[in-house]
Amino acid sequence: MASALAAKIGLNSLKRRQAKNFSVRICTMESDMEFSCEVKWKGKDLFDLVCRALGLRETWFFGLQYNVKDTVAWLKMEKRVLDQEVPKEEPITLHFLAKFYPENAEEELVQDITQHLYFLQVKKKILEEEIHCPPEASVLLASYAVHAKYGEYDPIVHKPGFLAQEELLPKRVINLYQMTAEMWEERITACYAEHRGRTRDEAEMEYLKIAQDLDMYGVNYFPIRNKKGTDLLLGVDALGLHIYEPDNRLTPKCSFPWNEIRNISYSDKEFTIKPLDKKTNVFKFNSSRLRVNKLILQLCIGNHDLFMRRRRVDSLEVQQMKAQAREERARNCRG
């Protein structure tokens, strides 16, 4: 039995080696796409193909994510796709998602497609309560989400009940109040009606401007232990590293902004954060899972790089993209 199974596995791997192509399904926040890829392709070859298909040029924010056991991983750009721990069944399913978040969406996001994908991803995280959102902000965000979908409010078209099938508020917010679905719709519609004069794209940007001020926006959390063995959470985001109590993801115990960190080193499951100020204590913590440690390192390096990039003059490519976006928007306004 064992030898038959081994022979079957060996045959499958032989078939893959002999095949010149393999199929991949890419799930974006809006739709799925399928591609035929060459077996020799590296992560970057596939990633570039997806970005071209989407017409996306702000590639530095995004990545291709997949699940490995009970954690997530991001496709490495410099390594062959098939040499990574991607799912083995074809089509291989990968998720095209924002890996890094902007500090200021309005200043940083240039293309409409970039903004739209962020909007959809952040909205999903808020509705699934991965980002905590207070009730008042939830209603306001819901009204901008409605505007982004339905366009300008028109009382003749948008009659009571038009939001009956929409998921617009986190369940936690709905459960806080003894309000019917009709009452919630009335509140959201009243806000929606005040947004007259905005385009759908502008509604999405207003949504992101509110969302980016929420405490859990853009933070990746990881369970860690300090030198004393105390359970804590590490938060990695656009601004730096944050240490939280396990039961409070909203307010960090302490923070290390990127511009105040001299060095982050990692050795044998132990991370060391060395602040620029030598009078400030070095912070050490342990994370026992290798895959999670690799992910923490990736997010630290990527977020730090973007933090520094934001504080330099825009590259020629970004300047050209911004000029092109301004021209397109001006044409749309005239049209």
Rank of each mutant, 00 (worst) to 15 (best):
L64A: 07
Q65E: 12
Q65G: 01
Q65I: 02
Q65S: 01
N67I: 04
V68E: 02
V72H: 06
A73I: 00
A73W: 05
A73Y: 01
W74C: 01
K76F: 08
K76M: 10
M77Y: 11
E78P: 04
R80L: 13
V81G: 12
V81K: 08
L82C: 08
L82D: 11
Q84A: 01
E85H: 01
P87I: 01
P87T: 00
K88L: 13
E89M: 11
P91I: 02
P91L: 00
P91R: 00
T93G: 00
H95W: 02
H95F: 10
H95R: 07
F96N: 10
F96M: 11
L97W: 02
F100L: 12
Y101Q: 07
Y101A: 07
E107A: 13
V110S: 04
Q111Y: 00
D112T: 03
I113D: 00
T114Q: 02
Q115N: 06
Q115A: 13
Q115P: 01
H116D: 13
H116G: 00
L117E: 07
L117T: 05
L117N: 07
L117F: 10
L117K: 02
Y118V: 07
L120H: 05
L120C: 07
Q121M: 08
Q121R: 03
V122T: 12
K123Q: 08
K123T: 03
K125C: 14
K125A: 14
I126L: 12
L127C: 09
E129K: 02
I131P: 12
I131R: 11
H132Q: 08
C133H: 07
P134A: 09
P134L: 02
P135K: 05
P135A: 11
P135Q: 08
A137H: 09
A137Q: 13
L140K: 14
L140R: 13
L140H: 09
L141Q: 04
Y144A: 09
A145K: 12
A148Y: 06
A148N: 08
A148C: 05
K149D: 06
K149I: 02
Y150A: 06
G151V: 03
G151H: 05
E152R: 06
K159V: 12
K159E: 07
P160Y: 11
L163W: 08
A164K: 15
A164E: 13
Q165N: 14
Q165I: 04
Q165V: 08
Q165D: 13
E166V: 02
E166C: 10
E166N: 05
L168K: 14
L168W: 13
L169R: 13
P170Q: 12
R172T: 05
I174R: 15
N175A: 13
L176E: 15
L176M: 15
Y177S: 14
Y177L: 14
T180R: 10
A181H: 05
E182G: 03
M183D: 15
M183S: 14
E185W: 09
R187W: 04
T189C: 05
A190P: 00
